[in-house]
């Protein structure tokens, strides 16, 4: 049985896994970046990052002090609709206390901090549906350093592909070292203003070594990856060959009169974790199959 208690437990485990151990694709990309860099400063930045990842795993402790705000993706399988919001909140409160996570969620105007990472519409839960036999929960703790550098532009259709490329370049140059590069670029093209932004974030759920299935989009991902790494911004914006670990793009059809494009930047601490809860109530971790391993 999938009970509220199981959802709470899964949430807690997901959060602990996410903030202490990076997914395999990110780890590999960071190691490769370390090999690629030649100069002392960028190499030192990547060495610090890799050493820090080991410390986090050994703790287990949060790899970064900014454990983010908490974006969840809940996918209901067949006949599985149930209320999960309270259970997720409870799991998050528990994780905040004992992992621990930094209490980041505040009222947008008074800046009042309830201290447990919850508040109105926070954590934010996206609901999706599938015809599988399990309930899937994914979490993306999102830090502010990278999120604050994100951008949306409503291009005109005539600006087209060139306009999209220019916009991404400007966004990256403007971001410089602020979002803790090497970063991962999530992009949403099309839809509407809100849809493109949502797609940009969802793109970050995809591993960096899995290109978009659409060959035209995959080519754009590859070209942007190569181009941005030629900029020379480098790890922490101190110069170097690695500015991004990947560019992931999702797209949607849009209005004939518009071309929305959104960029959501994710830092090297690209934390995400996914688990499935089966009908018998068992929890299967997908991104982090075993405790402390990936």
């Amino acid at each position: 049985m999938i009970t509220e208690n199981v959802v709470k437990q899964a949430t807690f485990e997901l959060l602990r896994n996410a903030v202490t151990v990076l997914p395999r694709d990110i780890n590999e990309a960071l190691k490769k970046a370390y090999e690629t860099e030649e100069e002392a400063i960028p190499k030192m930045q990547l060495k610090n990052i890799l050493d820090n990842i080991e410390l986090a795993k050994a703790g287990p402790l949060p790899m970064c002090q900014d454990t983010g705000i908490h974006i969840f993706y809940v996918t209901y399988g067949k006949d599985m609709i149930m209320k999960v919001e309270e259970a997720i909140k409870d799991g998050l409160r528990e994780a905040t206390k004992s992992v621990p996570l930094r209490p980041n969620a505040v009222h947008p105007l008074t800046r009042n901090n309830p201290g447990d990472n919850t508040g109105l519409k926070m954590p934010y839960i996206n609901y999706r549906f599938s015809d599988e036999d399990f309930l899937e929960i994914a979490v993306m703790p999102k830090g502010a350093g990278s999120e604050n550098m994100s951008a949306l532009k409503m291009l005109t259709p005539s600006q087209g592909l060139a306009g999209i490329k220019e916009f991404v370049l400007n966004t990256m140059v403007n971001a410089g070292g602020k979002p803790c590069p090497p970063t991962i670029i999530g992009m949403g093209i099309g839809g509407s203003a809100d849809i493109s932004m949502k797609l940009a974030k969802e793109a970050l759920l995809r591993p960096v070594n899995a290109p978009n299935k659409d060959p035209q989009i995959a080519e754009l991902e590859k070209d942007l990856y190569e181009a941005i790494n030629t900029l020379g911004i480098g790890p922490m914006g101190l110069g170097g060959k690695t500015t991004v670990l990947g560019v992931n793009i999702e797209y949607a059809y849009c209005h004939t009169a518009s071309l929305p494009v959104a960029v959501n930047i994710q830092c090297w601490a690209a934390r995400r974790a996914t688990a499935r809860i089966h009908k018998d109530g068992s929890i299967e971790h997908i991104t982090h199959p075993k405790e402390g391993e990936i």
Binding site: I41, A162, K165, E166, L169, V173, G176, G177, D223, L224, E226, A227, I228, T230, L231, G232, I233, G234, G237, L238, G239
Partner: peptide, 22 residues
């Protein structure tokens, strides 16, 4: 160092635009 990187970036822009066919 950030200023130095910024001017390097400007210099690299030509190559970057070539890759993107801009």
């Amino acid at each position: 160092l950030y200023e130095k990187v910024r001017s390097d970036t400007e210099r690299n822009m030509e190559d970057v635009r070539k890759i993107l066919k801009l």
